[in-house]
Nucleic acid binder design. Structure first.
Length: 335
DNA sequence: AAGTGCATCAACCGCACCTCT
DNA sequence: CAGAGGTGCGGTTGATGCACT
């Protein structure tokens, strides 16, 4: 017996979302919160598939999303994480605040993959810098070995971080900047700004829409959320109390592990430039928060999820010794 | 200026997983 | 335990814009 489609194909609108649809969707979510997507088209009157609504929200309308212009640090992170995790874009996105898996996937497929290919082909690209701060071209084998070493270092650090005698700091929501800078300690993060910045994000979108009337494609992309930006403060995410107060924190679990900075330090990155964007502070993206704490799963906590994830990762790989890594012929086939 | 090819990215599709009954 | 429904994820597509000729 075949499964019925998530939505009947007839009467379901496809294609780009209009600002009006965005407004409707955002208003609804504002009122009811994300989730129960099945009910969204019914309750809003949108002629959209529930999946389409969810996608639109998570990839575009959701507050706290940073779009375009990947920084060099983000680029490096993506490359490292892709090597570590493979094409698990959602997982990768969880380490890149503000970025959606779709965004990262697109960026990888359209840009990074090609550059890496070029690199592999022997041509020098700036990506060579990822593994060579001196910006010198490095032979493939060399940078791959270097990658392997980085991976090993990351794992080692994580192992230390997760070891019983190394306590993770689980800061108060507003205290997340005051974390150990110990290389091995994994910085917990709060999902804070994600939703906290929602109003700002939406305001930005709105600005764009104002500048580009709805008949313009770009306008239809962003904007929308006009009348709702202020009310995001009551979004159920408590963006108002915002000053970074995690909205997801309703359950009192703000102890997610932020690996991004761990990776940064592990790989010698400079800090991601959150400071350049006052809206941002290091934290998990909503994506990450979703990964680590499903809103619909009361039992799970931010604290638990990343640990199990990391533990699994470590356990899966503790068999791979450093020597294995460095002598494996230089291929990042860890999984 | 017009035509063509390429790049980008939002959105769709299908599968897998999870939860509930 | 099994089946159904809901959600999430990754791969892929298609529309659009841009660059080049």
């Amino acid at each position: 017996m075949g499964r019925p489609p998530c939505c009947d194909k007839e009467g379901v609108k496809k294609g780009p979302w209009t600002p009006e649809e965005d407004i409707i969707l955002v208003s609804y979510i504002q009122e009811h919160g994300p989730g129960n997507w099945r009910a969204v088209p019914t309750n809003t009157g949108l002629s959209r598939c529930s999946k389409s609504c969810r996608l639109r929200w998570t990839n575009y309308l959701r507050p706290g999303i940073k779009r375009g212009n990947f920084t060099e640090q983000e680029e490096k992170m993506i490359i490292h994480l892709q090597a570590l995790l493979g094409n698990r874009w959602a997982a990768i996105a969880s380490y890149l605040p503000q970025r959606t898996d779709n965004d990262i996937k697109n960026y990888w497929n359209t840009y990074l993959k090609k550059r890496l290919k070029k690199l592999e082909a022997g041509s020098e690209g700036s990506l060579g810098n990822v593994y060579n701060s001196a910006s010198k071209p490095i032979p493939r084998g060399q940078w791959e070995r270097r990658l392997q070493t980085d991976i090993h270092m990351a794992k080692k650090a994580l192992t230390e971080a997760l070891s019983p005698n190394k306590t993770l700091s689980l800061p108060e929501p507003n205290n997340n900047n005051n974390l150990s800078n110990d290389l091995g300690s994994i910085k917990p993060t709060t999902p804070s700004l994600s939703y906290a910045s929602s109003a700002d994000n939406i305001a930005r979108l709105l600005k764009g829409w104002m500048k580009n009337p709805p008949n313009n494609k770009a306008a239809s992309k962003s904007n929308s959320v006009v009348s709702t930006q202020n009310s995001f403060n009551n979004f159920g995410y408590d963006t108002a109390s915002s000053e970074g107060t995690p909205s997801f924190d309703a359950k009192g679990n703000t102890t997610s592990v932020e690996l991004s900075e761990t990776f940064e330090s592990l790989f010698g990155y400079e800090s991601l430039d959150y400071s350049s964007n006052s809206e941002f502070s290091p934290s998990l993206s909503p994506e990450a928060s979703t990964l680590f704490q499903d809103e619909s799963k009361p039992g799970s906590t931010i604290a638990e999820m990343p640990f199990s994830l990391l533990e699994k990762w470590l356990l899966d790989d503790t068999k791979i010794s450093c020597s294995d890594i460095t002598s494996s012929g230089g291929h990042a086939t860890l999984f």
